[in-house]
């Protein structure tokens, strides 16, 4: 059961196509797995289209000449776009196989690099300071207690993890900001899609020395 969802403001902006690609991808992953949010997005889209397309007051007049020439140009080619039926893409990370969510299938990804129980691949989305990654925490692994200087979005693609705030499973959408401190632990291992806008800040004892991990995850 998915328990953690994007709030309605995020869903609205998603339906309007107004979020950066990295965040939109996170919501798309969630929506693909969450029937409730899927319906919500479909309804929002329908409302928007009704507002914009079902009243002829909201038009900018175009000249007949303009219409004719654009129609002519567009219909010049008889080509059609064939939808590709089988788009499933799987990846293998440290011996684990995962099927990528549809939203990530065409996002360019870097090679995997790893420290301890963590492995990470970055997406080249070019939305600095936003950075998007896939993060694998192997079974029994954890991320030391940290706060976020900015925000951190995590969408669980596979497996589970838990922190001080609860237990999370596939599809859960977790948005944390600078107020939160957490130290995620995973028993069965997990794969997460993450977006952050600043490096994590480790808060405890020896872990302060681990700050390179902070920038590794970011």
């Amino acid at each position: 059961m998915i328990k953690h969802h994007p709030n309605s403001e995020l869903l609205e902006k998603f339906a309007d196509g107004e979020l950066p690609a990295s965040i939109a991808a996170g919501i798309a992953i969630h929506v693909e797995m969450c029937p409730v949010c899927k319906v919500a997005v479909a309804e929002l889209t329908e409302q928007r289209s009704a507002i914009h397309f079902e009243s002829s007051d909201l038009e900018m007049p175009m000249s007949e000449l303009n219409i004719a020439s654009m129609v002519e140009e567009i219909t010049l080619s008889d080509e059609i776009d064939i939808a590709i039926a089988d788009k499933e893409k799987s990846i293998s990370v440290k011996g684990e196989e995962y099927i990528l969510p549809r939203a990530l299938t065409n996002m360019a990804m870097s090679k995997w690099s790893s420290i301890g129980h963590l492995a990470r691949a970055r997406f080249s989305i070019d939305e600095e300071p936003l950075r998007a990654s896939l993060l694998q925490i192997q079974a029994g692994g954890s991320v030391p207690e940290h706060t976020h200087k900015g925000f951190e979005l995590t969408v669980l693609v596979d497996g589970h993890f838990e922190d001080e705030l609860g237990i999370y499973g596939p599809g859960d959408f977790i948005l944390l900001d600078a107020e939160h401190t957490h130290s995620p632990v995973t028993k069965d291992g997990c794969l997460c899609y993450t977006v952050a806008n600043d490096a994590q800040h480790f808060t405890q004892g020896i872990n302060k020395l681990l700050n390179p991990i902070g920038s590794f995850i970011y």
Binding site: A21, A25, A103, N106, D126
Partner: peptide, 18 residues
């Protein structure tokens, strides 16, 4: 972002489910 990766059809599929 000077990116021509055309991600939209993966985020909002025009064809419902695979």
């Amino acid at each position: 972002s000077k990116k021509e990766d055309n991600l939209s059809d993966d985020f909002w599929p025009l064809v419902e489910s695979v």
